[in-house]
Amino acid sequence: MHWLGGIRFFEAAARHQSFMRAADELHLTHGAVSRQIRQLEEALGVTLFERRNRAVFLTEAGHILHAAATQSLDVLGAAAQRIRAHGQPRALVLSCEPTIAMRWLIPRLPRFTESHPEVTLHLMAAGGPVDFARSGVDLALRRNDFHVGPELHAHEVAEEWVGVVCRAGASAGASSHRLHTRSRPDAWQRWAKAAGGAQRFGADAWYEHFYLTIQAAAAGLGCAIASRLMVADELADGRIAAPRGFVRDGSCYQLLSPVAFEHDARRRAVRDWLCQEAQASLGADPAQVAASPHPVRGAKGAAKRGGRKDGK
């Protein structure tokens, strides 16, 4: 039954009705997910998806397998919850968007451990909506670019400040390549709108993930749009420059929880520490920030995303 390994790829693709969105959730390439599903189809001897013009649709066999996979995952999730309940106190699992996790959160986690030795925190890299019941996640740090239901508690950690970044000493103008990411394809347009108009750059280059564009910019391959939080350390030590400063783009990072923060001291500790660290990072070098007199609140602002608001 070697084909069982492909079930998680199939379940994600069936749930999203998209190989690309499944790849984003699993932090793999579209090709990797497609290969896994093709191998599963070959092992079972049936076609699970109809592929039409980059869209995929479940076949009759696909619907049958998806129903069974969903039921099995629910059973496994419930069993995991029961097992974890016997091991109290257990670690808190914090799900965090990969680029923020790698470039900002992980370097600061030793400070959390030092200040809160009573809280064991496990980090999981993931983005987008989170199913707390099935994933085993306790908290999720997310940018508010998707709907949050009223059953969740949301606390704003920091506003999103974005700007053009490049290698220190490099030019950021018409001769520079403009580096794009498929995980935020509208990043340059959002920055241009918030900054008050587009500016001329050179040819376009595309990368699969946000952190790759920042790495490419730091290597001198062009200019990227970056969150100020993501480049806070590089700005501080001079490895990266933001010659045009940063502007609010109307979004924010928020901490999501299925349990009210006031009902759990450990969740409150994580929330308060994240807010403290975020504000310290955003205020570390005010000269780098092109401040506007008022926050920019677009249609995707935290107050309009749903969810219960705790604190801010």
Rank of each mutant, 00 (worst) to 15 (best):
R305K: 10
H263E: 15
A287E: 13
Q276C: 15
H27K: 12
E50A: 10
F9Y: 12
V46Y: 01
H155Y: 06
F57Q: 09
E118C: 03
F201R: 07
L255T: 07
V75T: 12
T181P: 03
R142L: 08
V247C: 02
Q39Y: 10
A154S: 11
C223T: 10
W273Q: 06
M124Q: 13
A242N: 07
A216K: 06
M1E: 06
L40M: 02
H116W: 01
R51H: 06
L26A: 06
A219V: 04
L221I: 09
R308F: 10
L121S: 04
S176Y: 01
H177E: 10
E114W: 10
Q189D: 14
L76C: 12
A218H: 11
T29F: 05
A125T: 15
P286C: 05
V46G: 06
R52Y: 05
P293F: 07
D138H: 09
D310R: 09
D310I: 08
F246Y: 10
F132T: 06
H30N: 09
A260C: 07
I214Y: 01
V93E: 03
A69I: 09
G250Y: 06
Q17Y: 00
P150G: 12
R266K: 08
Y207I: 02
W104L: 07
E25R: 13
G250F: 02
A69W: 04
V289S: 11
S227I: 01
A302N: 03
G62M: 00
V46C: 09
G77M: 06
H155G: 14
H147E: 11
H116V: 01
H63W: 12
R142V: 15
H116I: 03
V33H: 05
L4T: 14
R15N: 15
Q199S: 11
G136P: 01
R244P: 11
A260L: 02
A140P: 00
H66C: 14
H294Q: 14
R35T: 12
G169P: 03
W161N: 12
L92R: 06
L4F: 13
Y207P: 00
